[in-house]
Design a protein around this nucleic acid. Structure first.
Lengths: 197, 197
DNA sequence: TTTAGGTTTAACCATTTGGTTAACAAAAAT
DNA sequence: ATTTTTGTTAACCAAATGGTTAAACCTAAA
């Protein structure tokens, strides 16, 4: 592994855990087991290093979402695939959603930046699809944006609010993972039950 | 308004916007229009000031949740009341959910601390109620914790991930508020549709 | 009117933090 | 073989940051 890769991995880890303002360059250097000056040699500044990490994190999630939402399958099929594959993926990076949401909130100017990215999630197609399936009488009439929000909320929230959720319903890490595993099918079942005619 | 109150309000504002690590004592002092030394005079340290703010924020939400979840009404009634009153309340403090979730994630030791608080949300009763309504055949069989997570996710997520949501579905602040207004009844309708027999 | 109490301020301090520099080593190019 | 480029390190720096202090300033009771 090259030094640059070591730095990137370490930065990914530290930023994810502490956030941008909470992370320390020295801590990243220690984690990567290299001299702090190397961080600046390869990435110039904390901001740039963070941006590299953030965009990479975002880039991991977005294409997957788009791939499913912009395919040509039926709505029910898309919802099933999305919940299943999103949860599977995120279980490998359980802190990614909260990291992205947090830094997005603390840094709203990022939104503008990433909205220009071609990899950004674009809900246009699936929103139209929902409308048309309603007109065709395949599902109950429902505001398309609400339905989309429902799917996202139910899938992403438990990870984004992980610590709180574990604390309130009082479960261990393993139980949390089991719950998420169960949730892969639970979510699509719930949603489909709610909107099917 | 006393100086202490001015400080508290300013701290509430700044911490909520920047998080613990991102907030600066000087910025809080400026916001409160007082001398920085006063912060330490009244609150001793950044940690203590933050804790006061955080616990107050949490204390605003928790009793409300408990009040509804631990009442003696039917499940459907509770769900309706919860989504409606939670969203109404949070629309007045739109950054409270993300603040609590974020600091909880960055500071997992807080969990231990607030779990000892008598005001903490306790889902025991409503979880039992769900079980019993299933046994009585009033609703479809469903893992109680999943149902609880569903309600929370759909209600809290849009606020917690506000910036991201606005960016992705491309809506203004006003449209967001309209969407949340609509959501007050949408959520309970969806959930009840999904679980009613 | 004095005085004792809390309140407020400006100046100061030690530490932390992101970032730089200059010397040095290793590899690549000539 | 020598020069040039790239990678690496330790020491250093200025600015920012949380926190302190000692004196000044009220103000209400004695």
């Amino acid at each position: 592994m090259t030094t640059e890769e070591k730095i990137f991995e370490a930065a990914f880890k530290v930023f994810q855990k502490k956030g941008f303002t909470g992370a320390r360059m020295q801590e990243i250097a220690d984690e990567a087991e290299i001299n702090k000056a190397m961080l600046h040699y390869f990435f110039r500044s904390k901001e740039r290093l963070f941006e590299a990490v953030f965009m990479n994190a975002f880039g991991k999630l977005a294409p997957q979402i788009n791939g499913i939402f912009n395919s040509d399958e039926a709505l029910f099929e898309k919802i099933k695939k999305f919940t299943d594959s999103y949860i599977s993926f995120v279980m490998e990076y359980p802190f990614l959603p909260q990291f992205i949401i947090q830094e997005m909130n603390n840094n709203p100017e990022f939104v503008t930046k990433f909205l220009k990215d071609e990899k950004r999630p674009d809900p246009t197609k699936i929103l139209k699809q929902i409308e048309s399936e309603i007109e065709l009488g395949l599902i109950k009439p429902i505001p398309p944006k609400q339905l989309l929000l429902d799917v996202f909320s139910m899938t992403v929230f438990p990870f984004a609010a992980q610590t709180l959720v574990k604390g309130i319903i009082n479960i261990s890490d393993e139980e949390f993972f089991q719950l998420m595993e169960e949730r892969k099918i639970h979510i699509s079942e719930q949603i489909i039950n709610a909107i099917k005619k």
